[in-house]
Write a protein that binds this DNA or RNA. Structure first.
Lengths: 253, 253
DNA sequence: TATCATTTGTTCGTATGTATC
DNA sequence: CGATACATACGAACAAATGAT
């Protein structure tokens, strides 16, 4: 019989909640080792599987991280170090994006179609498009995947893009501007748990969430031109947006 | 001995990866029930704990959701329905924020201090401040917590804020503007797994990530005035930012 | 309405493998 | 090398929710 954990509402959940509280109260500091599974068994009078379930909860909450053969570490809950600045700056015909990172590999260009979310955001159903995939690495080693989708009709109007769709976003903005477009962007941000291949691509050792952003480049008539998609580990990076007050109350969907 | 799962690299992970792939290939459609644990045991020749670990992986990936006594459902991977528009619009002396929601309760005003992240973003060490907490609910029932931190020195300069710190953000912007400030905002976005009390406050049944944003209101000299913090379930809501090209290349930290 | 089979949830015990120190 | 600690896997039992009979 457990010592001071009452029955209903899963003991492993109670134990997890208690340990989580102890961590957030600073009883265990980041970098500390939690008591070993054996010690927790004895301390709370529960079996090993119960302790393991509780520790698994802590891991899934991002509060702890286990190391095989060593112990379970309390993780720091500090804000991610890398700031991905999502602002766009223009001086004359040149554009600069706020965050630059090296490409870990060459951009991969494929031909595909707009589907699902991509089709919806680009307002084009099943249209052929260039798809450019990049893997970016910043100075701290944080990895980010970046995908640009350029519909064929846009590339057709801007031959520069058709020739080399794998130019950097800032250069794409410049080419679109040179072609007579006045650009604005709308960016959607969400987060989710990574799929196995995403976690592998981003080299995420643990199972934290990833940040997902969709940036739609719009022309003066608010027609979508291209789509950029960014995936990065939320534990490694945060996004930064500069917001300024707008004048006209034109809003869409 | 397992039928066609080779040994090294945890069988439960292999099984999870296989089921995840089957889901993403559409073999199991959203809303479908996965085979029961007993069926999976027989199909793959593994024990029930192994099957349960694999299904737990699927849940933590957000691909499945179990229902006691019924089975395990395949979840839809669509984008969140609610869009939280983070733009700010100004017409004359009036400000409007892009996303409005009802307050589920009255705003709770407390007095506290800037600490940790709050202190860093407001560039004030351990300064006394008003803290205003709100719980917002939109028409779809999505809940969002909103915290405003107003340092005492700012409230002192703008008596309107000291009198009623629990005014809506748009009104705070107007008051700050009336006091002679020219406002811009910087917003930081990250995501993490919710702590137990956060999950409770947002009424999140499952264990997906939450989106966390910090919006810093800056005056013309880029000095931070107030801080807004938003928490919402990433499975229920996504954020939308409008990005426009800036002129001057002034950037900070 | 009540019962029953099915299904997931929880907990225990036990054994073995493997990384760390 | 040995002790410790986490990782994986099996078996077993009962509880609790669900849906159909």
């Amino acid at each position: 019989m457990p010592e001071d954990l009452v029955r209903p509402d899963a003991m492993y959940k109670q134990l997890a909640a208690r340990l989580a509280q102890a961590i957030s109260e600073g009883e265990y500091e980041p970098g500390d080792l939690l008591p070993s599974e054996t010690q927790l068994m004895e301390r709370y009078g529960v079996s090993r599987p119960t302790v393991r379930s509780a520790v698994a909860e802590l891991r899934s909450m991002g509060l702890a991280q286990s190391q095989h053969g060593r112990g379970t570490l309390v993780r720091s809950v500090a804000l991610p170090a890398t700031v991905i600045d999502r602002t766009v700056t223009r001086s004359g015909k040149r554009f600069t994006v706020g965050w630059e990172a090296d490409e870990a590999e060459f951009p991969a260009v494929t031909r595909g179609h707009t589907t699902g979310v991509t089709a919806q955001l680009l307002d084009r159903e099943e249209e052929a498009a260039f798809i450019v995939d990049r893997l970016l690495t910043d100075t701290t080693g944080t990895r980010t995947t970046h995908r640009v989708t350029i519909p064929f009709d846009v590339a057709h109007d801007v031959p520069e893009l058709a020739k080399s769709p794998d130019t950097e976003p800032a250069a794409i903005y410049a080419a679109l501007t040179a072609a007579g477009h006045t650009l604005t962007w709308t960016e959607y941000v969400t987060a989710r748990s990574p799929l196995p291949d995403e976690r592998a691509a981003l080299r995420m050792p643990d199972t934290g969430p990833i940040l997902v952003t969709y940036r739609v480049t719009l022309n003066g008539d608010d027609r979508p031109l291209i789509l950029e998609e960014l995936h990065t580990s939320a534990e490694r990076a945060q996004l930064a947006f500069r917001v300024t007050a707008e004048k006209a109350p034109a809003r869409r969907r």
